[in-house]
Design a protein around this nucleic acid. Structure first.
Length: 599
RNA sequence: GGGGCUGUAGCUCAGCAGGAUAGAGCAACGGUUUCCUAAACCGUAGGUCGUGGGUUCAAAUCCCUCCAGUCCCGCCA
């Protein structure tokens, strides 16, 4: 419905211009023309509204109600308005309530049923490349709920951009480089010396245990620590045996990650920190040459504006440690520069998005500030940090197992599917249905995984959120099962209609009932929601929309017969079912959630 | 000490490019099934939007004060 909104806005803009001219206040146009029309806050009164007359009241020194009357008569000089609106009413102190005409709503409805993107317009920009940096687990460490949030939010944002026609580069900025590899490689060489020569596919088992073991040695054995430090240097110099050990560790981890990505149905390209290694030195050099960095206590730092430490001194961003090593700030700067640079030595991105937890806000603010100083962010390009809050247990504390250990993502997903399966089996026996194993496995998998994703995405990402299987798997409320169930209801109707009368679904549709019109209007809001996500990067708005759409659909379903309605009415209602189905499917696709025919 | 984020119904949260009566879900209470999956729908009850100020015709929303919680602040990421 954005196209209608734009037409409407145009008409109001012209009218405003005219009104300002009459009152000799032309100079205020730019300021006043922002947000001329908004969604109605009272849907019973109109579809859109304009509050401009209350603002003009002060300027014209006139009663807003009177201004509204004059404003409307100016609008009505443009006969196009009658094609769009059925009424323009003045209410309250001076609101203009805009009701759209049924014809234009029906036109839009038919347009959307034919549009594969459901009315979402394609982006019209020169640089369509967007880098999304998300997921980013660490080698030899287990993925946990923190990675889950990044992975799910990043994937959903990527899907939204893709459907808009952007070229999305999904980057997995894996922690595959750095000091921790010293101890890991040293430990590997000690425990599995044969791995390096035979190149046999060594199974080093639980990588987390492996990590813990090497960390323990690093903390306790002096000799080991020395060897580990030397190993880091060897690795960074490209020593073949170190590199080969490093490759083994990475590929073991990769197996783990990929199995989770496959469970979650996530597409992502691995481009770890190591990728930027060749660029680190030049980044540091350039910052030195541009006099942006200085040496302090042996380390090369950039002192940041607007941030200070406990002593009140400016906070540094360290780009080279006193031992000559580089750290994550250096890597992030190199990555940022590379991503904005033109190919072949860069991605040529127009927008870079980092999906990481809120704890890194300061770090990114620092990195962005330095990049700006170094002029690495080209004109008309933008870089954003998309932070998210912690995942907490029901007790409000960081999610942990009973033993106080971090919960493995793998286990968490398994648990969700297991619970979904238990619920399903209960229901099947209660309803005295018979279903085969295949159905049970697939259904519980879609519900289990979908519920975890939906619970996460439906939350405003900024806030911490309480992880609860009971809530996310509930049939009621803003949950995946509720949404999936609405879709199942439509599938049920479609199955029945095949067996029932075969009516032509033509375009001669008509609607008389409120619950039909409410559904139509909600359906047509879809593109507005998508555009708002593109701008503000808040996938929870799509969930919110989905939930409201399902509520409105379920009311419609409850109140009006479809299959038992007379043929013409049935056809019209089926059009609504079909578009609802399409909207639900597309929305769930954009959230990365699979759908079901029955459940 | 500096900075980020959060504080809305008993609980979990929406709403925060200012707008008309602050919304859901859960929990509580009451109702609806000859009908397309009742995993639904309808209704009742529940709120000085942390505090105090300011801007405005209009503030949960913007600005400032304070209070509470949480995260980050030199060579980990």
């Amino acid at each position: 419905m954005l196209s209608i909104y734009q037409k409407l806005t145009k008409i109001f803009e012209n009218t405003l211009k005219e009104s300002l001219e009459i009152n000799q206040k032309n100079n205020l146009y730019n300021k006043l023309s922002l947000n001329l029309i908004t969604q109605s806050s009272r849907e019973d009164l109109g579809d859109y509204q304009s509050n401009i007359c209350m603002i003009l009241s002060k300027i014209y020194e006139k009663n807003p109600h009177q201004i509204a009357e004059e404003f409307i008569s100016l609008i009505e000089k443009n006969k196009n308005i009658f094609k769009i609106c059925s009424s323009l009413d003045i209410a309250g102190p001076g609101f203009i309530n805009i009701k759209l005409s049924e014809n234009i709503l029906l036109e839009e409805l038919i347009k959307n049923t034919k549009c594969p993107r459901n009315g979402i317009s394609l982006v019209d920009k020169e640089n369509k490349k967007i880098v999304i940096d998300f997921s980013s687990p660490n080698i030899a460490k287990e993925m946990h709920v923190g990675h889950l949030r990044s992975t799910i939010i990043g994937d959903s944002l990527a899907r939204v951009f893709e459907i808009r026609g952007y070229e999305v580069i999904r980057l997995n900025h894996v922690g595959d480089w750095g000091t921790q590899f010293g101890m890991l490689i040293t430990h590997l060489k000690d425990v599995y010396p044969e791995a390096l020569e035979s190149r046999a596919n060594i199974n080093i088992g639980d990588l987390v245990e492996f990590y813990k073991a090497s960390k323990k040695r690093f903390d306790n054995e002096e000799e080991f620590q020395k060897k580990a430090r030397a190993e880091v240097v060897r690795l960074q110099k490209g020593d073949p045996s170190s590199i080969s050990a490093w490759r083994i560790l990475c590929s073991e981890s990769r197996k783990e990650f990929n199995s989770i990505y496959s469970t979650l149905n996530i597409q992502i390209n691995e481009r770890g920190e190591s990728f930027y290694n060749p660029y680190l030195e030049s980044v540091v050099k350039e910052l030195e040459l541009k006099n942006i960095s200085v040496e302090d206590q042996g380390a090369k730092c950039v002192f940041l504006d607007g941030m200070s430490n406990k002593e009140g001194d400016k906070l540094p961003l360290i780009i080279q440690k006193k031992d000559g090593g580089f750290n994550y700030a250096t890597t992030d700067l190199a990555a940022l520069k590379y991503r904005f640079s033109e190919p072949p030595n860069g991605d040529g991105a127009g927008r870079i998005i980092y999906v990481t937890d809120q704890g890194q806000s300061n770090h990114f603010a620092g990195v962005f500030q330095v990049a700006k100083k170094a002029k690495w962010i080209p004109e008309n390009c933008s870089v954003e940090h998309v932070p998210f809050g912690l995942v907490q247990g029901i007790d409000g504390k960081k999610l942990k197992t009973r033993e106080g250990e971090t919960i493995k993502l793998k286990d968490l997903l398994k648990e969700s599917v297991k619970r979904a399966k238990k619920d399903l089996i209960n229901r099947i026996s209660e309803e005295q249905r018979t279903e085969n194993d295949n159905f049970i496995a697939n259904t519980s998998n879609v519900i289990g995984i979908g519920s975890v994703k939906y619970a996460d995405l439906s939350q405003n990402r900024i806030t911490n959120y309480q992880f609860s299987f009971d809530k996310m798997l509930a049939m009621n409320g803003n949950t995946a099962p509720y949404i999936l169930y609405s879709l199942v209801r439509i599938s049920g109707i479609k199955r029945k209609i095949k067996n029932a009368r075969k009516e032509e679904i033509n375009e001669k549709i008509y609607f008389n009932e409120d619950s039909e019109w409410n559904l139509i209007k909600k359906l047509l809001r879809f593109d507005e929601v998508i555009m708002s996500i593109e701008k503000d990067l808040m996938p929870n708005r799509l969930c919110n929309y989905l939930f409201e759409l399902c509520q409105i659909f379920n009311r419609f379903y409850d109140q009006l017969p479809i299959l038992k309605a007379e043929p013409k009415t049935m056809n019209s209602r089926m059009v609504l079912c079909t578009l609802t189905e399409k909207t639900l499917r597309l929305s769930l696709y954009l959230l990365g959630i699979e759908t079901l025919e029955r459940m």
